[in-house]
């Protein structure tokens, strides 16, 4: 049995179904990313696991215990919101202490030691007496994380924790959060709409769309073997084209390319191309007007000497080809 189990959760707001029969398993010590477009129900799922929202049906098991109707205070979790929700009238240390006071049993010295410890962990020791407004976005984020982990919760919930930050800070904090999570070995659920964040941080990704789970698996699994066209398209880029009553899908970077026919035996006309730094993306048209895009290294692009409307030859490796039944593709 998994450490945290979500079984057949259903949730409706007015007439809209936000979660339809959603199940998920989370192992102890794992960092699981719930990934999906906005409005797919991922945040509601997180709030139900927290007990901040009640499900209309289904159950939540924590450590084998049915916690479905348990109030948030009795579930022993820490939570970090996109807005951080730091109390602006308290210092960083004050914010952390505010939650610790109610742990009970901790003495004054122990509480102070615990505050020092978590502040060291998130590298905010010298900012302990500052108010949230005096901190940068990244520092506020870390302060919120420190506040969440200070009471030694048994699991951690992160609701789009990095969305409000600049791109650079976001990338750095990914690593920091992951390191702290590993060091503590704390079971963590993180909600995000950023596929790159999910791929780099997660042990397991749960991809959601339209109130249901599309796929759950390791980052490699969901990238290399996306279970549905939605997953294929949502994570990374994907080419779809019909062939022999199925829909074939191939990642742009898997396609090989050449100037002359040979092992590359599919002819394509170049419609345009984009220089993206290390990579260059080529937009081409296959016979039968199917559009296709190919990613190659920019060095390789120079070798070939791209120009618009020129003819190229592609090889689509069979081993990387993914096939979907056609009706599923129509949902796309």
């Amino acid at each position: 049995m998994s450490y945290l189990e979500v079984r057949n959760i259903t949730k409706r707001f007015d007439r809209q179904t936000v979660l339809a029969n959603v199940s998920a398993d989370i192992e102890k010590g794992e960092l699981v990313c719930v990934l999906g477009p906005s409005g797919c129900g991922k945040t509601t799922l997180l709030r139900i696991v927290a007990g901040l929202e009640t499900a209309d049906g289904g159950s939540v098991y924590i450590n084998g215990r049915d916690c479905t109707s348990l109030s948030p205070g009795k579930r022993n979790f820490g939570i970090v919101f996109q807005s951080y929700a730091l109390f602006p009238n308290m210092t960083v240390a004050g914010n952390i202490l505010f939650g610790l006071r109610h742990k009970g049993k901790l003495g004054r010295e122990e509480m102070r030691a615990r505050v020092d410890e978590v502040l060291r962990m998130v590298d905010l020791s010298e900012h302990r007496n500052k108010y949230p407004r005096q901190l940068s976005g990244g520092q506020q984020q870390r302060a919120a994380l420190a506040r969440a982990i200070a009471p030694a919760p048994s699991y951690l919930l992160l609701d789009e924790p990095l969305s409000a930050l600049d791109a650079k800070v976001r990338v750095r904090l990914r690593g920091e959060i992951r390191a702290i999570q590993r060091a503590l070995g704390i079971t963590t659920i993180m909600v995000t709409h950023d596929q790159e964040e999910a791929l780099t941080m997660a042990d397991k990704i749960i991809v959601m769309n339209n109130a249901t789970v599309e796929q759950a698996g390791t980052p490699r699994e969901v990238y290399d073997r996306p279970a549905t066209p939605f997953v294929a398209n949502f994570i990374g880029a994907m080419n779809f084209y019909p062939a022999n009553e199925v829909v074939c899908a191939i990642r742009p970077e898997r396609i090989e390319i050449s100037n002359a026919p040979g092992s590359c035996n599919v002819a394509a006309d170049i419609k345009g191309f984009e220089f993206k730094g290390a990579m260059t993306r080529i937009y081409g048209i296959l016979p039968g007007q199917t559009e296709i895009c190919v990613d190659i290294s920019s060095d390789r692009a120079d070798e070939i000497g791209l120009c618009e409307r020129a003819r190229l030859y592609l090889r689509i490796p069979e081993e990387h080809l993914i096939k979907y039944p056609p009706p599923a593709a129509r949902v796309m």
């Binding site: 901040l52 948030p72 919101f81 929700a85 009238n89 505010f98 109610h102 009471p151």
Partner: peptide, 27 residues
């Protein structure tokens, strides 16, 4: 006030009364 103050204090087992007196009212 941040809508999540209530959620955060619930997760930390801080009573709503204490949250009101220490955070909502002072702010």
């Amino acid at each position: 006030l941040d809508r999540e103050f209530e959620s955060v204090s619930d997760s930390m087992r801080v009573s709503r009364l204490r949250l009101f007196l220490r955070v909502s009212a002072p702010l």
